[in-house]
């Protein structure tokens, strides 16, 4: 095994353990922290694929910004530990089972169709990953893609975000007026 492969299994393992921990912990703070662990090790996987910029953005946006807001909400609402029974009762349980089966079916379908030609860990797959890691995607390339080749979709996305931003401000302002 090369160093890259060892690192892949370390990062992949940690991110799986983190993901399982998210749904296993009964306290929301612990779940949120496990999710950060998962995001962070996924950034490690991006680095292994030579996508350094994506890795940094993954940490800045997901681990650094979004999860802080999650933690804020959990702390300010002072959510306690879930009871032993959990939240899955009655109708919710039925819905959960149906959705779970659908999700599993999707997973199996994808696994069967996408991975059937390239066995995971096959020589070609390793070669391709190594080629990616040797030629890191430069930030320059991403800039060219975003601001030249895909300029219109990029601008449309930013408009959508702007709309959301304005929406938030309007909502917050309205609440203030009632208080005053």
């Amino acid at each position: 095994m090369t160093a890259d492969q060892i690192l892949f299994f370390i990062f992949g393992g940690i991110s799986l353990i983190g993901a399982i921990a998210v749904i296993s912990f009964r306290h929301p703070i612990y779940s949120a922290l496990s999710l950060i662990v998962t995001f962070f090790s996924q950034a490690g996987l991006f680095v292994l694929l030579g996508a350094h910029f994506v890795a940094a953005v993954q940490v800045i946006v997901y681990a650094g910004a979004i999860m802080v807001l999650f933690l804020f909400v959990i702390m300010l609402l002072n959510l306690g530990t879930l009871s032993a029974k959990g939240v899955m009762t009655g109708k919710l349980k039925g819905i959960a089972i149906v959705l779970g089966i659908l999700f599993a079916a999707q997973g199996i379908y994808i696994a069967a169709n996408v991975f059937k030609d390239t066995e995971v860990g096959s020589p070609e797959a390793i070669e391709r990953a190594a080629a990616l890691a040797d030629n890191p995607i430069e930030t320059y390339d991403i800039g060219v893609l975003l601001f030249r080749d895909y300029l219109l979709p990029f601008e449309v996305t930013s408009l959508i975000l702007l709309a959301a931003l304005i929406g938030v401000i309007v909502l917050v302002k309205r609440e203030n007026r009632v208080e005053n």
Partner: peptide, 25 residues
């Protein structure tokens, strides 16, 4: 000497806030 040096610094400093939040909570 990584080619995203400054982003790395921003990314890692943004994680520092967890120590404060978690310690406080």
């Amino acid at each position: 000497d990584i080619n995203i040096g400054i982003l790395f610094i921003l990314a890692i400093t943004s994680l520092g806030v967890y120590g404060v939040v978690i310690g406080a909570w």
